[in-house]
Simulated scan of single mutants.
Amino acid sequence: MITKEEVPMAALLYSATMSLDGFIAGPGGDMGWLNRHLGPPSPALEALPSQTGCLLIGGRTFRGDDPNAGTDSEGAFEGEYAGPSVVLTRTPPAESVPGVEFETDLVRAVERSRELAGERYVNVLGAATAQACLRAGLLDEILLCVTPVLLGGGTRAFEPNDLGEVGLEPLPDTGELWFRMRR
C-alpha cells in the first residue's frame, strides 16, 4: 500500500475499474455491471478515498450513471468521498452545485483541482478526461482494477491515440495495477 509520504503533492491519478476486455462503462454508459461483478476491495483501494483531496470529473461522467444512485453508497468511492470536485465540461450548468466547481479549460481544471487537493491525490474520473490529461502530459499515475467480466462494448479505459508508447513504472506493494508515469 502506498503511504502518504510516497504520494507526490497533488498528483493526478486516473483510477478506474475495468472489465477484462478494457471497458470502464458498458454500452450506453451503463455502470450497473459494477455492482454485479465487484469483488472485495484491497487495502490499497480502501485507503484511496482518504488519500484523495479532489476529484477531477469529466462532464459525461458527472452527468452519467451512478450504479449506487439512491443508496447510502451513492457517489465516488461508493459514497466514501465527501471532498471538493472540479468538473471539466463544455457546458457548465446554469445553477451551482454544492461542493462542485465547473471549468471549461483542461489546464485550468487541473490547476484548480491541485489547489483544492493540497497534498493529496487529484483523482480523475472519466476516460475522456483522463486521456486528455495523458495527452497533455498532466497525468502522474494510473490505477486500474480488473473485474472478471467481458462487457463486449462500451467506454474503453483507454482509446487508441497518437501518443505512441508511454512508459509506466509499477508502484510496489499495492497489489493492484498501479503505475507512475515515466517522464
Rank of each mutant, 00 (worst) to 15 (best):
M1N: 08
T3G: 14
E5H: 06
E6R: 14
V7K: 10
P8I: 11
M9Q: 15
A11S: 10
L12A: 11
L13R: 12
Y14H: 01
S15H: 15
A16Q: 05
S19F: 03
L20S: 04
D21M: 07
G22K: 05
G22E: 14
G22D: 08
I24W: 00
A25H: 04
P27Y: 10
D30R: 14
D30W: 03
D30P: 02
N35Q: 10
S42F: 03
S42E: 13
P43Q: 10
A44D: 08
A44W: 07
L45Y: 05
A47M: 14
L48H: 04
P49Q: 11
S50E: 15
S50P: 03
Q51F: 13
G53M: 02
L55I: 11
L56A: 04
I57G: 01
I57T: 10
I57L: 01
G58D: 02
G58Q: 02
G59Y: 00
G59N: 00
G59H: 01
R60Q: 14
T61Q: 14
F62E: 01
G64I: 03
G64M: 06
G64N: 13
G64T: 10
D66W: 12
P67I: 11
N68C: 13
A69E: 14
G70S: 13
T71Q: 05
T71P: 13
S73P: 03
A76I: 07
A76N: 07
A76G: 04
F77I: 14
E78F: 08
G79H: 00
G79L: 03
Y81M: 00
S85F: 04
S85V: 11
L88E: 02
L88T: 05
R90P: 10
T91H: 08
T91K: 11
E95N: 12
S96Q: 11
S96V: 15
V97W: 07
P98N: 07
V100E: 01
V100Q: 00
F102M: 05
D105K: 03
E115N: 11
L116Q: 10
L116C: 12
A117P: 10
A117M: 06
G118D: 09
E119M: 06
E119R: 15
Y121A: 05
V122D: 03
V122R: 01
N123M: 15
L125P: 03
G126M: 05
A127C: 01
A128Q: 08
A128F: 02
T129I: 08
A130C: 08
Q131N: 12
A132C: 00
C133W: 09
L134Y: 00
L134H: 07
L138Q: 08
L139T: 06
D140H: 11
D140V: 12
D140C: 12
C145P: 04
C145G: 14
V146F: 02
T147K: 00
P148N: 04
P148F: 02
V149Q: 00
V149L: 00
L151T: 04
G152C: 04
G154F: 04
A157W: 05
P160K: 02
P160N: 07
N161C: 13
L163P: 01
E165N: 12
V166E: 07
G167E: 12
L168F: 07
L168A: 07
D173G: 02
G175F: 03
W178A: 06
F179Q: 06
R182S: 13
R183W: 12
R183S: 06
